[in-house]
């Protein structure tokens, strides 16, 4: 069926928020192509009348009571942050 192109690999890398080098694009294109070809063996099966399984247990939505509760304190939440300032996570500029 379809062959994965380098252009697709670059696009998918962007969607996945990964910076990949041209060398990696080359390698990844080949590897993803192999894996996708292997995955296409599934097309041997007719699944027109088969319902998809997202989850093996017959679970309905699980709700909890809408009550405020104690969770993590702000100082604790910031404890493992690579960069923080004035009780908030600090990040590089979002807008150019």
């Amino acid at each position: 069926m379809s062959n994965i192109s380098k252009e697709q690999v670059r696009h998918v890398a962007h969607l996945a928020r990964l910076a990949i080098s041209e060398e990696e694009v080359e390698k990844m294109t080949k590897q993803l192509d192999d894996i996708i070809h292997y995955a296409e063996s599934l097309n041997e099966l007719n699944t027109d009348d088969v319902e998809p399984t997202t989850h093996v247990l017959d679970l309905k939505n699980v709700m909890r009571k809408d009550e405020p509760g104690k969770w993590i304190e702000k100082e604790d939440a910031l404890k493992n942050a690579p960069d923080k300032q004035d009780g908030q996570f600090r990040v590089p500029s979002i807008l150019e």
Partner: peptide
């Protein structure tokens, strides 16, 4: 991550992700 992002991406979702979910049922 790349394989998963591809399988979930627009235009490929039904052919790969949903197909795999159906095979999971089988």
């Amino acid at each position: 991550i790349m394989l998963g992002t591809f399988a979930l991406s627009s235009g490929y979702y039904d052919a790969y992700y949903k197909k795999a979910q159906k095979v999971r049922t089988l």
